[in-house]
Design a protein around this nucleic acid. Sequence first.
DNA 1: GCGATTAGTGGCACTCTCTGCCACTAAATG
DNA 2: CATTTAGTGGCAGAGAGTGCCACTAATCGC
Lengths: 214, 214
Amino acid sequence: MTDVVSEKPRRGRPPVSAEQRQQQRLDISRHAVRLFAEQGVAATSGEQIAQAAGVSERTFWRYFPHKESCVEPLLTKMVDAFCVVLRAWPPERELIDHLRDAYSPVLDTASDDDVDAVLAVVRLTHDEPALRAAYLVLRERAEHALADVLAERMGLPADSIDVRVRAAAASAVLRVATDDVARASANGITAEALNGHREHMATAVSQILGASTP
Amino acid sequence: MTDVVSEKPRRGRPPVSAEQRQQQRLDISRHAVRLFAEQGVAATSGEQIAQAAGVSERTFWRYFPHKESCVEPLLTKMVDAFCVVLRAWPPERELIDHLRDAYSPVLDTASDDDVDAVLAVVRLTHDEPALRAAYLVLRERAEHALADVLAERMGLPADSIDVRVRAAAASAVLRVATDDVARASANGITAEALNGHREHMATAVSQILGASTP
DNA sequence: GCGATTAGTGGCACTCTCTGCCACTAAATG
DNA sequence: CATTTAGTGGCAGAGAGTGCCACTAATCGC
């Protein structure tokens, strides 16, 4: 092992922490999504987003490789939160019970504005093909995370067919449920909508995960 | 009904038939995919594709709104073929039996080159994020077609939750199976790979479609 | 055949997205 | 303070796409 933390005496300005960078991206993301919703994606230029976020256009393009990837930070924030909850799911409990206890606090942690923004993005993806594409790619990344969780629970490798099939199916069901709750909360988010979302997710995922392969 | 075929005495050059246009798109698609595979998407310019296909750049951009959508004609050809087979699935038969009888002839109809090209595209989508995005939105369109078929079979509206959930899950499973067969046939396509593909699809889809919702 | 009419193509100029390069500022070290 | 490394902004430029117009192609009635 040559890399024993390789104690280099660090000189010069230290790189910004990953958290700070993420925070900056999230901040720009919020501005971008607001503009997307107000005027559409095509009518929103990179320059405009940069200006709204208070950075130069050049810096903006350094943070986001494509315009549509502006939606990523907001969406991943929610997806990651869900994955954390899923990872903490005790094997012996019913999924629905676990989600009831563990998912609501997560939504409370996030600001209402962010929840609204996420749902707005999901709604936008129905009219904006570019955003839909970005959304689907992102969901596929979440699918891999889900596969890891399932692999652990099932005692199988994460790249085994069975695990991947279940992860894919469950993820697809979650997408449908998410699209539904986004549509339902088009004008004002309601607690019932979120509850319904959770129930949907729970039953659907249980169904997929419960189905046994011969 | 005012539109009684509105017998306008048609003057001037008639529009090109949809089939001819589709054929032209397919032709360009083949060139584009070959170039994508040879040099990568980023390194392939629209001008280059246009030149290879023997049309002007301006015309190329008229046929394809984005560079990545060049993969669409080839992929939809295969997806559509599958949908046709699925639509002809007699309610009383086992899906696996139906596919065994009806799917192979379809693959024989398509030229081997096209089958190779489609699998090459699917393989490309793993390294080329832009193509992956295009691929996923395309699959989502296929998912809707699948939902229509399921709705008819189940006697439910195509936009009912149950139908959409099953279509989404089945489609996701098909994606995994397709990715698998593409990976398996990386160097040279084999009959066994295609057979395995069919079996995978059949069992997976049967599983999803067989699972009953309370 | 001929002009009229409509569809499709190619060329040109233009905007917007995104990148490479470089100078400049910011934050750490000794 | 000089040095070193990280990050930002500005500028130029390639490539993606679009609007516009002239030009060719195919069909009509004559």
